[in-house]
Nucleic acid binder design. Structure first.
Lengths: 107, 107
DNA sequence: TTATATTTGTCGAAAATCACCAAGTTAAAA
DNA sequence: TTTTAACTTGGTGATTTTCGACAAATATAA
């Protein structure tokens, strides 16, 4: 099971970038990126777009890696039942199905 | 698809409590609980235990409702692919399987 | 050693959270 | 209608959290 940090590190090294170089492209310093790669701190969601561009990958792939890790960590940390993810998926699909009322949802 | 707020409201009224009464039991005022029930603000996770006790239900049930809603909202808000939840479930199970190393995970 | 890359801890400003309060609205009864 | 209770909404200030930045320490390599 690859962590988000390792996923980023793997793609970074595959592209021949060091931490300083990649960090600069997403508005961090090398220390910040190091922490992200080692799971010591969370990356801001607003940097995912830049990160995808810098690594030349689909932003959807990064989002999937990023949020699955975030959700799993919360689930573990707060001792959620496993079934939370099935219900979450249903709710997410429900939100999409009613997105015409998006403005009233206040999400 | 019942929202978390409606779930709480339904249980509250079933128990014959008004907002002021239930709110007091979980350290809120009626205004705060109203916002929670209407999805206008998030309930603090640390209040789930008290809420379960006040409503006489299993805390796992509340956690499932609470976090599934939170995850689904994030997924919708940030336009995650649906497959994020399958991966999240795998990761959560993986975390549990290595929980002997819990201290090193920094979750 | 010297240079480069990475890791780690700390700090302060900025942002977010949250309980509280007060005013406004609704609804039901009198 | 008036009164009363229940609920909603907006705002405020204090507290907490976040996050980029910096610096020192550690590692890696030449």
């Amino acid at each position: 099971m690859e962590s988000f940090g390792n996923y980023i590190r793997r793609l970074r090294t595959e592209k021949g970038l060091n931490q300083t170089e990649l960090a600069a492209k997403i508005g961090l310093d090398s220390g910040g990126l190091s922490k992200v790669e080692n799971g010591k701190k969370e990356l801001k969601e607003s940097k995912l777009q830049l990160l995808a561009k810098a690594l030349k990958i689909d932003v959807a792939d990064i989002k999937k890696q990023y949020f699955s890790e975030k959700f799993a960590e919360d689930c573990f940390k707060y001792k959620c039942p496993d079934t939370v993810f099935q219900l979450a998926e249903e709710k997410a699909k429900y939100y999409k199905s009613v997105k015409t009322k998006q403005a009233s949802l206040n999400l």
